[in-house]
Simulated scan of single mutants.
Amino acid sequence: MPAHVPDLTALTLLVAVARTTSLAEAARELDLSVQAASARIRSVERRLGAPVLQRGRQGRRSSRLTARGALLVEWAGPVLDAARDLDAAVTALRPPQPDADPVVLAVAPTVAEHLLPGWLVHLRAGPGGEVALLGGDATLDDPAGDPAGAVRDGAAAVGVVETGTALAGLHATTVATDDLVLVVSPGHPWAGGPGVDAAELAATPQITRRPGGGARGALADALAEAVPGVAPAAPVCELATDAAVRAAVRADAGPAVLPRLAVAADLATGALTEVAVHGLQTRREFRAVWPEGTSLRGTARDLLRIATGGRLR
């Protein structure tokens, strides 16, 4: 961890103090003693090098935030939100308990990595229910599974696929759309330029996911349509996750094409720069599928209502 980042419990405690205006009340919410809560606050102040709660006349710590403390609470929000997303996603990765009857999902990699955690957080905060991801024991070298096939075979109750075409034997509804984005480091020669065409992109070695992972297949299909008969250049390197690809691009190891969902934060902060690609269709549609002639019920229906923003047809 970075040297000056407080632990998640300390950040959660400080946010609770800001909301309740009481260190004692915040400690009760987190099932901590006041002494333990005070120790957590001291640890935050040691990392910050300054108080986060104001002191009274006798030097006693109050429950009023200092200006630094208030800023830390604001900046901690996205970190704690991400931790809640991760906690919900990790729960879906855990093997089901023997007496559990979870809804089994089969989803495309981009959906699992960038959309599913948020859906699971909303499910947990609302109706609840157990969800398990199909294929969690596969190795990273295995090709991506077929969510539609898993639903047809009965291995999964619901799938989320990356396609806009008809799916035989399945009901389908759109849950999200996204496009692929060419990104480079701010110091790359393409940064700030007029962009590239599909042929130049195909001829340029890129940082990619391993075969079957992330957006690699979608990019290959788009390039094959835009520049038929042209074989893409061999990749600079093949990595296991979008996070690893983003880190390599930030280190100026080369360009990469990733889902906008994966790079939105880096683009907003300027850590990565988007490059226009002319003549390439990169829009993608993600659709939830379930067996034709059936109706989703219980947790499966609740999850799909969340994924579709409250609608389900």
Score class of each variant (00 low, 15 high):
142 D>A: 15
254 G>T: 08
231 A>V: 14
105 L>K: 10
263 V>E: 04
243 A>Q: 03
306 I>H: 03
191 A>S: 14
156 A>N: 02
63 S>H: 05
49 G>V: 03
9 T>F: 07
247 A>Y: 01
177 T>H: 14
154 G>N: 08
28 R>Q: 11
133 L>T: 08
164 G>I: 13
229 G>T: 03
229 G>Q: 06
1 M>Q: 12
241 T>G: 08
169 G>K: 11
53 L>V: 02
202 A>I: 06
261 L>A: 14
7 D>R: 12
220 A>T: 08
116 L>K: 09
163 T>R: 14
67 A>K: 09
61 R>F: 02
181 V>P: 03
125 A>Y: 07
104 V>Q: 13
300 A>Y: 04
306 I>P: 00
198 A>P: 00
32 L>F: 08
135 G>S: 10
82 A>W: 04
6 P>I: 10
240 A>K: 00
134 L>G: 03
279 G>C: 11
109 P>W: 09
279 G>Y: 06
42 R>C: 01
167 L>I: 13
5 V>G: 00
153 D>R: 15
88 A>Y: 05
310 G>Y: 05
280 L>I: 04
252 D>Q: 09
244 A>P: 02
280 L>H: 01
187 G>L: 10
170 L>W: 04
53 L>Y: 01
106 A>Q: 09
175 V>N: 04
90 V>R: 15
221 D>N: 13
54 Q>M: 12
22 S>Y: 05
288 A>I: 09
307 A>I: 07
225 E>R: 15
265 A>L: 02
270 G>F: 05
294 T>C: 13
262 A>T: 04
295 S>Y: 07
195 G>R: 14
185 S>Q: 01
182 L>Y: 01
49 G>E: 01
225 E>P: 03
236 V>P: 03
17 V>F: 08
200 E>A: 15
145 G>R: 09
178 D>E: 07
248 A>G: 02
214 G>H: 04
142 D>Y: 03
145 G>E: 02
24 A>P: 00
77 G>A: 13
22 S>D: 05
159 G>Q: 13
21 T>H: 12
210 R>Q: 10
87 D>V: 14
50 A>D: 04
24 A>K: 09
241 T>F: 02
2 P>H: 15
301 R>T: 01
238 E>P: 04
174 T>R: 13
159 G>N: 11
288 A>M: 12
306 I>D: 02
36 A>S: 14
96 P>M: 10
109 P>T: 06
227 V>C: 09
118 G>K: 11
131 V>R: 06
270 G>A: 05
280 L>K: 02
128 G>Q: 04
142 D>I: 06
103 V>G: 06
181 V>K: 05
